[in-house]
């Protein structure tokens, strides 16, 4: 019964894990990071004590896995090499599907942010309230509110810039 619950909870988090992977990994690598996040969620499930909501706990695991991935990734091949290799692999397997314009705009904006701001903005996109964002990141909710307000203004400017270009 417990195991069935764990599986159901994990499955419910799969789309959010996919979105986080897309934000932190290069386009061709998102599938690998998505699977790694799910693997870590399954491995860490015994650490879930029920004190917070499952989604809040899962966002922590997902963001920590993604941030670790970004750091480790710098040691590996150059971005260009990796991008070419993975795009070729995914194009061959037929999983490389182009993003919509809106998603491309979000990704381009996220690429301009550092890890802390990117985490904050990702959680905002996931529609988490300030208290939950604060619980996931470990910073005060007031600080989340102030920084997010600045990030939203920055994002508006980014969208305006994109609209002008098109």
């Amino acid at each position: 019964m417990r195991r069935a619950d764990d599986v159901a909870r994990l499955e419910s988090f799969m789309p959010a894990a996919s979105r986080i992977a897309t934000t932190y990994a290069a386009h061709g690598e998102a599938a690998d990071l998505h699977q790694e996040i799910l693997t870590q969620l399954w491995r860490s499930r015994r650490h879930f004590d029920g004190q917070s909501e499952y989604a809040t706990w899962a966002y922590r695991v997902a963001l920590n896995t993604a941030i670790d991935h970004v750091r480790r990734d710098r040691h590996r091949k150059t971005t260009l090499e990796r991008f070419r290799l993975l795009n070729w692999r995914e194009a061959k397997s037929g999983t490389l599907i182009p993003d919509s314009v809106e998603v491309q705009v979000i990704k381009a904006f996220c690429d301009t942010l550092d890890v802390a701001e990117r985490s904050l903005f990702t959680l905002y996109l996931e529609a988490l309230d300030y208290a939950r964002i604060s619980d996931v990141l470990g910073i005060s909710s007031g600080a989340c509110r102030t920084r997010l307000s600045r990030l939203k203004s920055k994002f508006k400017q980014h969208i305006a810039g994109e609209d002008l270009e098109h």
């Binding site: 894990a17 599938a31 699977q35 999983t95 809106e102 998603v103 979000i106």
Partner: peptide, 26 residues
């Protein structure tokens, strides 16, 4: 284009890509 439209597209993209890339629980 506004923030909310982007956010909704973003949420929808997760559903699609999860279907494509997520392994089965088994």
């Amino acid at each position: 284009m506004n923030i909310e439209a982007n956010r909704q597209a973003w949420i929808a993209s997760g559903e699609k890509s999860a279907q494509r890339t997520a392994p089965s629980s088994t």
